[in-house]
Amino acid sequence: MADVESSLEYTTSLGSLPPPRTRIFKIIVIGDSGVGKTCLTYRFCASKFPEKTEATIGVDFREKVIEIDGEKIKVQLWDTAGQERFRKSMVQHYYRNVHAIVFVYDITNAASFRSLPAWIEECKQHSLGQEVPRILVGNKCDLRHAAQVSTEAAQQFADSHSMPLFETSAKNPSHADSDTYSSNSDHVEAIFMTVAHKLKSQKPLVLSQPANNTVTLRNQRGGEEEKGGWSCNNC
C-alpha cells in the first residue's frame, strides 16, 4: 500500500490552484442517512476519520487532487443528505454532469441495503444509468460482529447491477475488531482511486462502457487489496 500512497500527491485545499487544464472527476456519493457518506468522503479527502460528523443538510462538497500516471486530476466528491425529502427537490441540481456514482450502505443496517434499488432508480431518473461508472460500498466493516448484510448478498446485488462491490470502514483502524494488521483507511483511499482510474481510462469520459474494469488498479498494485478483506466482483 505504501508505494501507492507515496505515488499520490494530494491536497484538500482549494487554495492551491492546479494548472488550468486539470481534469475534474465529479463523483456523487449517495445512500441512506447515517451510512457514513460524510465519513467516507472526509476520509478520502483529508486522509483521516472525522471526529464528529453531523447530519449533512443539502449537499457538502470535498475535493482532492490526485496524480495518476503523471497526470494531476481533481476528484470532486459531492456528499449528499440521506433524508428522502432532500433528494426529491433539493439535490437534483447536483446530479448534473456527474462522472461516477458511489452508492453507500451500512453493513450493520439492513434497511440501508434495502434502499439501494430506490437510490439506483433515483439516479436513472436523473439520466444516470449504467453508462455512468457506479460502485457499491458497504461501510462500517469494523462492526462486522453486528453485520446484517452478508458479503454474499451484497455481491449478488452488485453483480446484478454490474457494479463492483467494496466493503470498508471509514473509521480509524484502531477501532476495528478485525485481526488483520492492515489499515482500513487505505481501503477508502483505494476505493476512490479505483473510481478515478476507471474514469481516467475512459476517453471520452462519458463513453458507454460496462463498469467492470478495476483491472488498471489491480495490475499496478498486484493483489494487495486482498489483505484487507474487501472485495470486488473482479477479484
Binding site: 442517512s33 447515517g34 464528529k52 460528523t53 453531523e54 447530519a55 433524508q83
Partner: peptide, 12 residues
Amino acid sequence: NQVLLDVQRSLR
C-alpha cells in the same frame, strides 16, 4: 429513527 440518528450526531 431519523430523529435519534440526527440528535446522536449533534454533539457540537
